[in-house]
């Protein structure tokens, strides 16, 4: 009898302490991909989302930068073991690691951006990069006086081809005769942060007659924006609103709201009541991707251009305008 009370007390104590530690440690966590936290692009957008959450709620969050692929599972187990909830991952390379770790921690909610993992406690957020790129492609074609538009990608990976394919479709939708030039900064991860090479590629494109260039190249895009500004041509930014970087030269930016996604995940995914597992596609309809108009480029986007692009946008949302998704067949049939 005594023993039972004692065990009960212990059990109660354990349960209580588990609850306490659970409550104390249920901070959200974000893990950045190999590009690093401050890549001026994708990972930084995730960081900004986390910071926005922190400023809004006053809460604390955990974050980690990876150094190599082998650390993915290690980092996930570590954060999940510490009781972090939810755990948000940014990047398309997480699929295998998360697929292995998620079943080990059924009570932890995971959110992964840019890839799909089918587990009951994982939310996969995908952005329709192709439709966002479609709109900026249309704007590029309308702005171009030479009838040639360019694209400069970062590392030569499928995700960036998805951007290009949408862009090309958008340009062709406005002007079926438009000339398209496609270049990639490199084949190693250094390509995400090589503004010099990207700038030289932009100059080469400009020399060949291109007058609007879309830079989907992470930190390398800075070089493209600068080169276009120097030559008096136009550029298009990516991921976050980059219109302010070279006002008057940046025609628009293709917004990919990774920051909002992380922010929302931090707010909602920690609680099972609001957590929505499964695949979520963020597209034009919900503002997950869009083109940016602000004071810096209001003068560049004429009412006529705006009317046309809004018409296309409505068409894409309604399904009457078709944009090819590179992911469906790994090809871009133009």
């Amino acid at each position: 009898m005594k023993l039972t009370t004692f065990t009960k007390a212990i059990a109660g104590g354990v349960a209580l302490s588990a609850m306490l530690t659970g409550a104390a440690l249920a901070d959200p966590a974000v893990i950045y991909d190999l590009g690093g936290k401050f890549d001026k692009s994708f990972n930084e957008a995730a960081y900004n989302g986390a910071e926005a959450w922190k400023a809004e709620t006053g809460g604390n969050y955990l974050d980690l930068e990876l150094q190599n692929d082998a650390q993915r599972e290690q980092a996930l187990r570590r954060f999940a073991g510490q009781g972090a909830n939810p755990i948000v991952m940014a990047g398309f390379s997480w699929a295998a690691a998360l697929d292995a770790v998620a079943p080990e921690f059924p009570d932890t909610n995971f959110v992964v951006i840019d890839t799909v993992v089918e587990q009951p406690n994982v939310q996969s957020i995908m952005f329709d990069e192709h439709t966002g790129s479609f709109l900026v492609g249309a704007l590029a074609a309308m702005q171009s006086g030479s009838g040639k538009v360019g694209f400069i990608g970062g590392m030569d990976v499928p995700l960036i081809h998805r951007f290009y394919c949408g862009y090309a479709y958008g340009a062709r939708a406005v002007n079926p005769e438009i000339g398209l030039t496609e270049n990639y900064t490199g084949t190693t991860p250094a390509a995400w942060n090589d503004p010099v090479t990207a700038g030289e590629l932009a100059k080469a494109q400009i020399d060949s007659g291109v007058d609007v260039i879309f830079a989907a190249a992470g930190g390398s895009g800075m070089g493209v924006l600068q080169a276009a500004k120097d030559a008096g041509k136009y550029s298009i930014g990516v991921d976050s609103n980059q219109n302010h970087l070279q006002p008057g030269s940046v025609l628009t930016s293709m917004l990919k709201r990774v920051d909002t996604a992380v922010h929302t995940a931090f707010l909602e995914a920690g609680d099972d009541a609001t957590f929505k597992p499964g695949r979520i596609d963020l597209g034009l309809a919900d503002g997950g991707v869009d083109y940016a108009v602000d004071d810096n480029n209001a003068a560049l986007i004429t009412d006529e251009m705006k009317a046309k692009v809004e018409e296309l946008k409505a068409g894409v949302i309604a399904g009457t305008v078709e944009v090819h998704d590179y992911y469906t067949d790994n090809a871009c049939p133009l």
Binding site: F92, S93, A95, T115, D156, V157, T187, Y327, D329
Partner: peptide, 23 residues
Amino acid sequence: FIAAALMVYMVNRVLKPATTMAP
């Protein structure tokens, strides 16, 4: 550098199954 370029080509265009998004 040649290795890096070759591997990007091989992984993206030859070895990658059509269903995965990651290279």
